[in-house]
Amino acid sequence: MDYVLHILVMMLIYSILSVSLDLAVGHTGLVSLAHASFYGVGAYASAILCGLMGFSFWVGISAGIVVAALMSVGLSIMSLRLSEDYFAIGTFSFGLVVSSVLTNWLSVTRGPFGIPGVPPPIIFGWTVRSQVGYLVAGATVLAMAVIVVRHFSSHQFGRVIHCIREDEVLAQSFGKNTLSFKVTVFALGACFAAVAGSLYAHYISFVDPTSFSINESILILSIVIVGGPASRFGPIIGAILLVGVPEVLRFAGLPFSVAADLRQILYGGVLVGIVLFRPQGIAGNYEFRR
């Protein structure tokens, strides 16, 4: 039962990550491989400020959000100069640099040793200790993320970013300052990713750089693509699938490393399969065209 609840919490966390990434990827067409960096920043901010330095949960999470939002501006600047595929490479290297920093800046992040002992958060007087508590917290954040993404993908803001997705020049020709839209989209994504990171840090009570590597970014992007970009529940369905199904393999009675490899093969295969045969994803209705 504990195990099932654990999987549910992780599904919630990945849902938050993928829903927030979807605003940039699915709605604005900006493929970013840097999302795990913001996830990591949020986690480490909470781990360092709450775990190592004893500040309250709110300090940790706020710091994470602020740092992540500021860093996301870097992505926006990159998008100014770079076309689609170069932009993806740019975000890819952004993710690698952050990962490197987390691994090597020993004095601050304790590098590969990680930061243990992140205390349970105290939210409005309630100490979140049990898994059910994290489920509630996670579900609340997810609901907020879904609402925010829905708001920003509707009305005039939504129209502009959907136009940017197809033809940025067209949006500019109607007087839209496309850069400011992109900055907003990246900042929102980064903020929610940081919150997810904070939740993760408190939940697992231990953070280390390997959880926020470029592979994580690839996983989160895959969740968006598989679930269905630019759809309300696509990213959540993707998270349930890509987090849940590999867990099933654990029970197949295979040796650990074999199961891990099979999981990866399955995951890679699903990715290629979806892109080839159902490009709009499971629940989506938008397909990335040239």
Partner: peptide, 8 residues
């Protein structure tokens, strides 16, 4: 000027 500014 950037195109969007001129459009505005």
């Amino acid at each position: 000027w950037l195109p969007y500014k001129i459009a505005r």
